[in-house]
């Protein structure tokens, strides 16, 4: 069975027909041609498919496209303004927080989401003080970025890049 949905992806409005079984990830990649989100597991276990969905980070392989009619999606590609990179992307480059790059679009979207969550004062499992503002310490960043696996082992650089992005 098919359904028709409308998505706003990286600022562009798109109407598309999708199988009701189609994940948001496959709809983005196959339907919209938004190829920045990657499929590392298709099971919500790796974070490679992370985008900002209505402003918050979300893994798109566990979302059904038909359930997100009207959604606003920002991928890693949409974070950059043409040639001008988002500060987090710039920090990833400077810190060499990537190798193969396959997890990277997801890491970058997740990082932007994390910085928003920190700024909004959302606590995590490692936040000691649940009442005050939250600081972007190494431990906070590591904890919050742990839904994004990196098989190349770029974590040390990723933590540094996210902290740079917080400045």
């Amino acid at each position: 069975m098919d359904g028709e949905i409308e998505l706003r992806v990286d600022g562009r409005r798109r109407r598309l027909r999708v199988d009701t079984r189609t994940t948001l990830l496959d709809a983005l990649r196959d339907g919209v041609g938004a190829l920045a989100p990657k499929k590392g597991c298709d099971h919500g276990q790796c974070g490679a498919c992370t985008v900002l969905l209505d402003g918050r980070r979300a893994i798109t392989c566990l979302a059904l496209a038909v359930a997100h009619d009207g959604a606003e999606v920002t991928t890693a590609e949409g974070l950059a303004d043409g040639e001008r990179l988002h500060p987090v992307q710039e920090a990833f480059l400077e810190r060499d927080a990537l190798q193969c790059g396959f997890c990277t679009p997801g890491q970058v979207c997740s990082a932007v989401g994390v910085l928003d969550e920190l700024a909004a004062g959302h606590p995590s499992a490692v936040t000691a003080d649940l009442t005050g503002p939250v600081e972007a310490t190494d431990d906070e960043v590591r904890e919050r970025m742990s839904g994004n696996l990196c098989r190349c082992g770029a974590y040390v650089g990723i933590v540094a890049a996210v902290r740079d992005g917080a400045r």
Partner: peptide, 19 residues
Amino acid sequence: PRRVDGPAKVTGTARYAGD
């Protein structure tokens, strides 16, 4: 020098086999 392919990778525009 920074990774030549870095900008494409941080923006997700690098084309892997499935892309």
